[in-house]
Design a protein around this nucleic acid. Structure first.
Lengths: 219, 219
DNA sequence: TCGTTTCCGTTGCAAATACAACCGACTTAT
DNA sequence: ATAAGTCGGTTGTATTTGCAACGGAAACGA
């Protein structure tokens, strides 16, 4: 476990905590290390989860098979990322996704109750971890709400306007760059790339926006 | 403030905490009560928020005006509900929504840092509140991810199948009731009601599902 | 410099969608 | 009992979308 402390130090969860403190905390938090061969499952649909997980080596897929057996890949987990934190509430029921190691991987499990039940003065940085965890989930929450705001629009044009409008606001100016190319933006908004490209050009011709590459301006 | 303690007792945040303890905690958490007349703003776009809010009287709308001035109502807040918890992370920037009182309303503000920085033994139930808050956000997170899963499907049929499939799984059987009528389900999935109704019937005719009112069965 | 790849705009077409309108079955209020 | 309202299914049409395919511009590497 110790060899992963440098990895943990760079994670959001342990941001601001030194390597020595992390080492001490691993005991206090009853962290458990598990390793998986490529192709093995880290978590399975139907299991119950009350741990928060951090990937410290390898790569994972979060995927789902529906009632009729159609598989879809929800997201990828890379080293240093935290996952499982959305499923630890007692009322959240069992997992609806599989988590699969697509490379040989190493995962550290943290007991949630241990984290949020602050212990004695023994680990001074514990409250920092509580804050990190809390802010991380809060921020994730905000991003999800924001994205739902775009996606709940019916047409491609409305989705684009919702997204671009918020980006402009976030940058505090009507001209800004976005972190996507066309295909990525289309995937993000769950629309077809060519249809979206088409719509962008129409909006430009109508004088709503201008753009060049990933740089946009609202008029 | 004291007169709202019975309301707070029934909230998710203070679940499991007695009225006396809540009273004691209000000081410890530096809770602040604000009241608003109908039509007044509780929060405005562009403000920064580092408090968690609980509505203890009245009714609020969370709404947004985009770059071109088009207003849309994101959601409604009813008495006892908590809001703002998605915006308190330091990196979350300023609010992109307005919060408007649509009735005369009362809101209690709680300082986040005060909540998650557990104080001395003075308030024994503090850690219970931390847990409640944590699980509430975690659960909200899960719901958002789940909904995004439905909404990211391209066609009405796929959205329906994704939703129904997960409901069946959640109930652990292929027959189950849903908490929506047709219009509500359409709104939830962001599709047109009549188109959805049409698609449901097609799916029934194709032998994928059967249903009656809000009771469905997957075949 | 040439070939390859990536990115993005464009087009045509089939499929899916939103929207409006209408109908019948049921429920609720008066 | 009648009227009004709600709910869900159906239909027709104009619009929007996804999809496949193509082509030009730019970036890249050999």
């Amino acid at each position: 476990m110790k060899k992963y402390i440098p990895v943990l130090k760079r994670t959001q969860l342990f941001s601001g905590v030194g390597e020595e403190e992390i080492g001490a905390m691993l005991n206090c938090l009853q962290a458990q290390l598990y390793t998986y061969k490529k192709g093995e499952y880290v978590l399975r649909q139907g299991e119950h989860l009350d741990k928060i997980l951090v990937l410290v080596g390898g790569k994972l897929h979060i995927q789902r098979d529906d009632y009729w057996g159609n598989r879809s890949i929800i997201s990828m987990v890379s080293v240093g990322e935290m996952f499982g934190e959305a499923y630890v509430a007692p009322e959240s029921g069992t997992l609806t996704n599989d988590v699969l190691a697509i490379e040989d991987s190493a995962v550290i499990f943290f007991d949630v109750k241990r984290i949020i039940t602050v212990c004695s003065a023994a680990c001074r940085f514990h409250s920092m971890v509580v804050q990190n965890l809390f802010f991380a989930i809060s921020e994730k929450n905000r991003r999800l709400i924001q994205k739902l705001g775009y996606m709940s629009k019916r047409t491609t044009r409305e989705k684009l306007l919702a997204y671009l409008s918020e980006e402009a606001e976030r940058h505090n100016r009507s001209e800004f760059s976005i972190p996507f190319n066309r295909q990525q933006l289309a995937d993000f908004l769950s629309v077809d790339r060519s249809a979206m490209s088409n719509e962008l050009c129409k909006m430009r011709d109508e004088g709503l926006i201008t753009f060049e590459k990933n740089r946009f301006e609202l008029l």
